[in-house]
Amino acid sequence: MAIELELKLMVQSEYLKSASDFLDEICTLSNTDGQSRQPTLALMNAYFDTEDASLMKAGMALRIRSVNSERYIQTVKTRGSSRIGMHARGEWEWFLTKDQLDLSLLTEVPLPEPLQDMSWANALIEVYRTDFERQVWNIVTQETKMEVVCDRGLVTSPYGKDAICELELELKSGNEAGLYDFALNIAEHVPVQVSVVSKAQKGTRLKYGKIKFPKKPLNTSNELELAAYWYEVWLVYWEAMYFMKDEALMQPVRHSMSQLTLCLPSELAYLLECLDNELEQCLVEDESMLLGLLASMTSVGTVMLRVGKWLNRQAF
């Protein structure tokens, strides 16, 4: 088993080439050993569950991945722990000889209690799939080795489709703060925003049509827990605004930012207040242009990343 720790950045399609060019330039100009552009991959992931979503409810994802239509990999991911804007989860992988699940391999996985009797095994169906192109860069900074990928494609299911357009920074070794530092370097040049919505969540969202929010902490006197909560609410509403193409969600976006401001040290609170002033100015523009205008702002991503870095440093 491996623990996968990654930072995901959403990026609108019109800025994807700028992100790719920026990463290419970093590798071209670098003399650092191990820093390089890797071959582009064509990936297909088929996700399986029961009709009543037994695996999803138990916090597990099961998929088969096809790489360039040549190799097949079976993967199990568990929900893992919350990392405040990052994704941390258990992951098991096995190479397969064909495009067919091998459930005997799951004996290596500590299955959640509701799934341990394997009664669900004969009821599995393919519930959604993802097809996307993946560009890959190996990046080495002073204390961190990471894999940075740029994914573009679609999530499809019987219930509809959703776009995949994102960057992922996965920690390979070293200091996880390096993920935030490098992401900030990207965000200062290309408009990106932090995302907490995985491809698997995009697939299940197509069926259930629900936006998943974090649970509000029971201990509301703990400012760090409240800050983490309002930070993730902010990220969820921001992504939902683009998924639903609904400018009206700017109101809860700004509300979550204002609540977060109350829980932050003065320097970060000031950055958030300045960003809110920028957002308020955007609201006087033509409503039909609002989402495009917001997506072009590098300040959104940089503030999200600075707050996320601080929160993770306090919590872990």
Rank of each mutant, 00 (worst) to 15 (best):
E126T: 08
M146Y: 02
E166S: 01
P158L: 11
I164F: 03
D162E: 15
F132D: 00
I139F: 02
E170S: 04
E170M: 01
C150A: 14
F132T: 03
T141Q: 06
R129T: 08
R152V: 15
V127G: 09
W137S: 05
I139L: 05
Q142P: 10
E133V: 14
T144G: 02
V136Q: 13
E168Q: 02
E147D: 12
T156Y: 07
V140H: 07
D131G: 05
R152M: 14
L169G: 03
I125W: 00
S157W: 09
W137R: 05
G153A: 11
V136R: 14
I125Q: 04
V149K: 06
Q142H: 14
T141S: 10
T130V: 07
T130R: 00
Y159K: 15
K161M: 05
V140Q: 10
N138V: 02
Q135C: 06
F132K: 03
Y128H: 10
Y159I: 10
D151N: 09
L169H: 01
T130A: 09
Q142N: 14
E143A: 15
D162T: 13
D131N: 13
P158Q: 11
E166H: 03
T156F: 05
V140N: 09
E168T: 03
Y128Q: 01
E143G: 09
D162Q: 12
V136Y: 03
E133Q: 13
K161T: 12
V155M: 07
L124Y: 04
R152W: 14
D131H: 06
E147L: 15
Y128A: 08
E126N: 05
E126S: 09
E143Y: 13
K145R: 15
L124E: 05
E133G: 01
V149N: 10
P158F: 09
A163S: 12
W137H: 08
N138A: 11
I139S: 02
Y159N: 15
T156N: 11
D151E: 11
V136A: 11
D131I: 09
E170P: 00
W137F: 13
P158V: 13
I139V: 12
E126F: 02
K161C: 07
E166N: 03
G153R: 10
T130H: 01
I139H: 01
V136E: 07
I125Y: 00
R134Y: 04
I125R: 08
D131V: 13
R134D: 06
R152F: 14
W137N: 06
T141H: 00
E147H: 08
E133L: 09
V155C: 12
K161W: 03
V140C: 10
V155K: 03
T141V: 06
L167W: 05
E133I: 13
L124H: 08
G153V: 11
S157M: 08
V136T: 12
T144R: 05
V148C: 08
V149C: 12
T156C: 09
T141E: 08
Y159E: 15
T141R: 06
R129M: 09
Q142M: 12
K145C: 14
C165N: 12
E170W: 00
F132M: 01
V127T: 12
V140D: 03
M146E: 04
R152P: 01
I139D: 02
L167K: 06
D162G: 09
Y159C: 14
E168F: 00
S157N: 11
Y159V: 13
V155I: 13
D151A: 06
